[in-house]
Write a protein that binds this DNA or RNA. Structure first.
Lengths: 353, 353
DNA sequence: TGGCAAATCTGTAACGTTTCAATATACTCA
DNA sequence: TGAGTATATTGAAACGTTACAGATTTGCCA
C-alpha cells in the first residue's frame, strides 16, 4: 500500500501543477500558490492552532486576494453541513400575506452568516409533515423554521425526537421545550376587549384564527376571560376563521350584522381579514365607530391609514423572522443550550386618529 | 495501473459488503442490494439505453421501495448542477409586499420539479450586483430570477454575457433578448387616464415607480400620451415615488393637495402607496369620488374592499412568479431556445362598487 | 551522541455522484 | 474457426472538502 501510495502521490501532485489556471479557485489552487499541502491550507483557513501563525496569515492573505470561496457541495458532501435554513410555508396562507416581512426578517438575520434561506412550500391539501420529513431525511438543511404551530404539533414532536434544530412561530402545549417566537395573542385579545369596553361596547364577536392553531386558544381565552371581567357577552362568529378567503369572511360578516343580536364590537385576529370585516359591516349598512367598533391586528401599517376609525395593535413579522432565524442558528450551534423562547407582548391599542 | 486497479477493487468491494445497513440509501446500497455495480445502478435510474430493460426495471423498483433519493451534494459536486433557483430580492422593497404572492407563484411552479428556491436578499444601500455575482461565481444556483429591472440593467448584461440562465420581472431596453414577465404598465396608465377622463377629471398626477426602473418609463409614457389625447394636463408629483415610505408619500400628498393647481385625479402605480395617497388626500380635507378620483393597482384585492370609491386594476404577482419560474427552467433546459417573454396586458379598470 | 517531544506540515481516504475507458459475454458473418 | 460487433456491465477517477494517521523538522535534555 505504501508503494502504491508513493506512485499515486507522484501522479497526483503532477496533476495539480500541470493544471491550467482556470475557473474558480479551490483548496488545490491555494495549495499550489502557497506551495503548501491541501490539508494545511484547509486548516490554515479555519485558524487551526497546529498551523504556524505565519503560514496561517500567508494562506489567508492569498485566499482573500484571489477571492477563494469554499465549495458548498464539497463541504456538504464531506461534512453533511448544508449551511441552509429551510422555512416551511403554507402556500395558501393568508391574504396579502404578512409573509414578505417574515421572510425579510429571516434573510436579514442570515445575511451576515454563511447560511442560505430556502423556501419550502406545502399546499393546504398536502401533509404538513411532508416537507419536514423531506428536509430531515435528505439532510437538505441544518435547521427548520415552521409556522402555524399547533398545540400538539406532529412536526415539533418529529423534529424534537430526531434532535433536528428548529424554531417555531408560535408555541405548543405538549410538554416539549422548544425554540419559538410568539406574539402574545391572549394579551392582544384582552387589550382589544378592554378597549371595546371603554367604548361602551357590550356584545362582542371574535374573528379568530383556525381552531387547530395554538394561538386560537390563546386569543380566544383572553377574549372570553376579559369579556367576563367587563360583563360583556359574546356573539358567536365561528363560521369563519381568519384563514378563510376574503369573500367568505365578507359574506359571513354581512350575515352576522343582520342578526337580531348583532355585535357592537369585533376583535379581529389578523390583518388581512379586517378588510373583509369592514366591507361586510358596511355592506350590511352599519357605520364603524358609530354602530360598531373594530380592533384589529395591523401588520403592514396600511389599515388605519385608510380607515382611521378602527383601532389597531401592531404585530411585527419582520422581528418574528429575525428572532426565529436567531433561534435556529443558536440551536444549530449548540443543541444542548436552552432554546430561545420569546413572547412579544403588545402594550397598547392605537386609537383612531 | 491495471494491477493496482485489481488490488483496489478487492478492498473497495469488501467495504461495500461489510458496511452495516445504516442511514439513508446511496447508490452503493442499491448496488449491493441488486448485486450490480454502482455505475449500472446510476445509469439504470436515469433510463440510460445501454442498460438492459429488465435490469433497469429491477433497479428502479428497488430504488422506489427503499425510498432512494439522490444525494444533492454528490450530484452537485460531480456535475455542477445545483437544482436551485435563486430569487434576488430587495429587502427594502415596497410596503406590505406583493412579495408573498410572487414567492408562492415561484414555489408552486417549482414544487413538481427537483428544484429548490433560495431567497437571496440585498438591501438598498448594497450593490444589486453583489448577490448576482455571488451566485454566478460560486455556482450556487442553476438559474436566477431578478426584479426591479432597469432599462440598462447591469445584471442583465452580466448574466447574458456569461450565458447564465435568468428571467427578469420587467423588461429592459438594451437590445438584449432575455426572458421576462412584465405587466403592461403603459396600458395600465392609459386605462387609468381614460377612466379619469370619462369622469371629467382634467388635472392629473401620477405616483410613479422610481425613475431608474424600466416600468417607470412605460407607465409615464402611457400616462402622458393618453392625457394628451384627452386634453388633460399633468400636475407634477415627482418628489416621491412608489418606493418611498408610507409616511413620506402621505406628507407629500397633503402638500400636493394644498397647491392652488391641485389635481382632480391621481394614478397610482402600486398597491401599497395607494393607501398613503388616500390618507393624504383626506388629511388635506378632500373627498375621494367627489373632489378627486384615484385609480390604483390592486395587488391583494383589499384596497377596494375598504375603499369602494376608488378605481382599481388588478395585477397578479402569483402569475408573475409562476411565469418567471417557468421561464428560467426552460432557459436552464435549453439555453439556445427562444426566451419566454410575456407581457400581461390589463383590460379593464374595476369601477367603484 | 541519542532519544524524545513539540511544532508544523503532509498524503490518503472518504463523502455520493457521474463519466470514461474498459471488460465480459453473446452473437454474426465470412 | 476466427474476427468483428453489439450488448450489458464494470472499476477507476474525479468533483472539493475534511478527518485521520503519519511524516518531517527543530529544539531540548540526559
Amino acid at each position: 500500500m505504501r508503494a502504491v501510495g508513493g506512485i499515486m502521490d507522484k501522479s497526483g501532485s503532477n496533476k495539480g501543477e500541470e493544471e491550467a489556471e482556470t475557473g474558480r479557485p479551490t483548496l488545490k489552487t491555494l495549495a499550489f500558490m502557497t506551495g503548501l499541502g491541501v490539508t494545511t491550507v484547509s486548516r490554515a483557513l479555519k485558524d487551526a492552532p497546529e498551523i504556524g501563525a505565519e503560514t496561517r496569515k500567508r494562506v489567508q492573505l492569498v485566499a482573500r486576494q484571489i477571492g477563494y470561496r469554499p465549495n458548498r457541495a464539497g463541504v456538504r458532501l464531506r461534512t453533511g453541513k448544508t449551511n441552509v435554513i429551510s422555512v416551511v410555508l403554507n402556500t395558501t396562507e393568508q391574504i396579502g400575506g404578512f409573509l414578505s416581512d417574515f421572510i425579510y426578517g429571516i434573510s436579514e438575520r442570515l445575511a451576515a452568516t454563511p447560511y442560505h434561506l430556502v423556501v419550502a412550500p406545502y399546499s393546504h391539501n398536502n401533509d404538513p409533515m411532508e416537507p419536514i420529513r423531506y428536509v430531515v431525511e435528505t439532510g437538505s438543511a441544518d435547521g427548520i423554521i415552521i409556522s402555524r404551530t399547533e398545540p400538539s404539533d406532529p412536526r415539533v414532536r418529529y423534529l424534537t425526537e430526531r434532535g433536528f434544530p428548529f424554531a417555531a412561530h408560535g408555541r405548543t402545549a405538549m410538554g416539549i421545550e422548544h425554540a419559538y417566537h410568539d406574539f402574545d395573542n391572549e394579551t392582544f385579545a384582552r387589550l382589544a376587549v378592554r378597549r371595546l369596553a371603554e367604548l361602551g361596547r357590550r356584545r362582542l364577536a371574535l374573528l379568530a384564527p383556525p381552531t387547530a392553531l395554538t394561538y386560537h386558544q390563546h386569543m380566544r381565552g383572553g377574549f372570553l376571560d376579559e369579556m367576563d371581567r367587563h360583563g360583556q357577552s359574546e356573539v358567536p362568529f365561528s363560521a369563519v376563521s381568519s384563514d378563510n378567503v376574503i369573500d367568505d369572511i365578507r359574506r359571513h360578516t354581512i350575515e352576522l350584522m343582520q342578526r337580531t343580536g348583532r355585535p357592537d364590537g369585533i376583535v379581529c385576529g389578523a390583518g388581512g381579514p379586517a378588510f373583509a370585516l369592514i366591507a361586510g359591516i358596511e355592506a350590511a349598512g352599519f357605520k364603524l365607530g358609530r354602530d360598531i367598533d373594530l380592533v384589529a391586528k395591523e401588520p403592514f401599517n396600511l389599515l388605519q391609514l385608510v380607515r382611521p376609525e378602527i383601532h389597531v395593535v401592531e404585530e411585527d413579522f419582520r422581528l418574528a423572522g429575525h428572532d426565529l432565524a436567531t433561534a435556529v442558528l443558536s440551536r444549530i450551534d449548540d443543541k444542548s443550550a436552552a432554546p430561545m423562547q420569546r413572547l412579544v407582548v403588545p402594550t397598547d391599542v392605537i386609537a383612531p386618529r
